[in-house]
Design a protein around this nucleic acid. Structure first.
Length: 557
RNA sequence: UGGGGUAUAGCCAAGUUGGUUAAGGCACGGGACUUUGACUCCUGCAUUCGUUGGUUCGAAUCCAGCUACCCCAGCCA
């Protein structure tokens, strides 16, 4: 079998290597990604997806997509569609697609078999009673008075549960294990419950539904899964997982093995479905795909690339310790990808008009501008007497080391000329409304005399031909303490400035007809992605992530 | 105070059977380059592995105790 190089190795791969070495799973390894279709996928799921599909790839095995749809009251096809879309978008192809609901009949048969083997019984206790009988963390539970029914009685009752003779909550099928077990999961866990509810796929065919603990190991076994990777909270369920497979006669070394890893936590955001739902339903964000959301759909809309997400999942590793990954790691991954992929264009977010007084009135020239510093390609950008520069690129009283534009100062306009600030025009309130500059005709980019050096280089757009655009700037959804922690009451930590909309940014005219989803680097600002709200008349950009800004740090000192 | 887990730098994380100076990445600092204060490139960043003892010529790795944090009492997954 393929053994991976030590790069990116993790304990799950080590465990699989060990299994292989011991000649287990000789048919090859088989994993699965088993989401419940009750919500949208987020970056924590991406970690699991990358892990499971990555294992299949690294060991030349297979990976299934299986919808764990055993709870009809919470699930919906809307989610199965979005989940499939997200997995595909991330760049993975599943070998087989299944639904736990496809196995309802087989699962029922397994339950019957379990009853026949005397390992399960129908219990008439109410859910409150079951809870009382279960005991507590420190005290053992008590056995149900229905625990010793005969196999025949159990068979009859279970069949009648299935036939719909009983109302919800009146009966339940339970495993017969050990009410005194220190592991609460093993205290005669519920295997089946009655729910007269319509299932999104099986409709009203069933009125009893298996619990996760019952359906999961058996679904894994049915599919020939070798390594069932899940998160840490299922660790104490593993004895039950193994008990069921053992009780039903699945052979050790061939039956699936459950391995648990720590779920992803990221600073400045929340990751639980419940909290994400709260954000959406409370109107704190525009929806599941709000670009500030850590959902796959949100990240996609924000402009993150699948490659960046995969790289991120690779870099954070897989282990068993609870961890909180700095969101800076994620940002680094997109920057690295987009630095390579994104074409450069010029856009001025907060325009300040500059009149070049010695430039001929009415003249426009088209300057060659490279699209990418290493990959090449070029376009022509118009330049004329009036342009816009970034408001923050001019300071009347500049701090030390400010090498942008200042009174009597010189600066290079990217792809164009060196200009000198001659006059600052203000309105009656003293606000700077315009700059009058002169340009050096000898300094034109690419020309024979372009060699003169000035310290600063600014981006700009031609005033006459620039396009107005809406630009949405994002900051973290949540404010965190120095340790990156969010309070339990996370809504109190919502960042009031997580979204800033600029309606009147000016972008170069080459951006006239662009496709939704296209990503650019706005020179000296950051990476931006064309939002789906864009129309032929109205451009809308989302900030993916800003460029690293050393000046911002220097300025603070 | 039952059971199950986890502890290696500010943050992730390698370190499998004990053996030279404890990988790598992020962040951060210093420098070079620069018509993006970007990118890139150099360079620095744990005498120490939660803690205390023990075994050993030798321990992050083995043993014992202690401490901290996470998870479990859904007919959710």
């Amino acid at each position: 079998m393929l053994e991976k190089e030590n790069i990116g190795s993790n304990f799950v791969e080590n465990a699989i290597n060990e299994d292989l070495k011991n000649e287990k799973y000789t048919e090859g390894i088989h994993t699965r990604f088993p989401p419940e279709p009750n919500g949208y996928l987020h970056i924590g799921h991406a970690k699991s997806i990358c892990l499971n599909f990555g294992l299949a790839r690294n060991f030349t095995g297979k990976c299934n997509l299986r919808f764990d749809d055993t709870n009809p009251t919470k699930e919906d096809t809307e989610y199965v569609d979005s989940i499939q879309e997200d997995v595909k978008w991330l760049g993975f192809k599943w070998d087989e697609q299944h639904y736990a609901s496809d196995y309802f009949q087989r699962l029922y048969d397994f339950a019957v078999e379990l009853i026949k083997r005397g390992k399960a019984f129908v219990c008439d206790l109410s859910s409150d009673e079951i809870r009382e009988y279960r005991g507590t963390l420190t005290e053992p539970g008590k056995e149900s008075p229905y625990r010793n029914r005969t196999v025949e009685e159990n068979l009859d009752l279970f069949q009648r549960m299935k036939a719909g003779e009983f109302p919800d909550g009146s009966h339940v099928l339970r495993a017969k294990i050990d009410m005194a077990s220190p592991n609460i999961t093993m205290r005669d866990p519920v295997l089946y419950r009655i729910a007269h509810a319509e299932h999104h796929r099986t409709g009203n065919e069933w009125c009893i539904y298996p619990m996760y603990d019952f359906a999961h190991p058996l679904s894994d076994a049915i599919e020939g899964i070798t390594h069932s990777v899940c998160t840490l909270e299922f660790e104490e369920h593993r004895p039950l997982y193994d008990w069921l497979l053992e009780s039903l006669g699945f052979e050790v070394g061939k039956r699936p093995r459950q391995i648990e890893f720590a779920r992803l936590n990221l600073t400045n955001t929340v990751m639980s479905k419940r909290k994400l739902r709260q954000l959406v339903e409370g109107g704190y964000v525009s929806g599941w795909d709000d670009p500030r959301m850590p959902t796959i759909s949100g990240l996609r809309r924000r402009g993150y690339t699948p490659a960046a997400l995969r790289d991120f999942c690779e870099r954070i590793g897989v282990a068993k310790s609870n961890s909180l990954v700095d969101v800076a790691m994620l940002e680094h991954c997109v920057r690295e990808d987009l630095n390579e992929q994104a074409d450069r264009v010029m856009a001025v977010l907060e325009p300040l008009k500059v009149v070049i007084t010695n430039y001929p009135e009415g003249q426009t020239e088209y300057l060659e501008a490279e699209n990418h510093p290493t990959r090449g390609g070029h376009r022509f950008v118009p330049f004329s007497r009036e342009i816009y520069i970034e408001r923050e690129d001019f300071e009347e009283n500049p701090p030390k080391k400010f090498f942008r534009l200042k009174p009597d100062g010189e600066v290079r306009l990217k792809h164009a000329y060196i200009i000198k600030c001659e006059e600052v025009i203000k309105d009656a309130d003293g606000n700077i409304v315009e700059l009058h500059c002169t340009y050096d005709p000898e300094s034109k980019t690419g020309g024979a005399t372009a060699g003169r050096k000035v310290k600063g280089t600014l981006h700009w757009v031609d005033a006459k031909s620039a396009l107005q655009a809406e630009v949405r700037l994002y900051d973290y959804l949540l404010l965190t303490d120095e340790n990156g922690n969010t309070p339990d009451d996370f809504l109190s930590a919502l960042n009031p400035n997580s979204l800033r909309v600029i309606k009147d940014a000016m972008v170069e005219p080459s951006l006239k007809h662009i496709a939704e989803g296209t990503r650019y680097q706005f020179l000296r600002k950051g990476y931006f992605c064309v939002d789906k709200d864009t129309t032929p008349e109205h451009l809308v950009f989302n900030e993916v992530v800003g460029l690293r800004d050393t000046w911002a740090k220097v300025k603070k000192d």
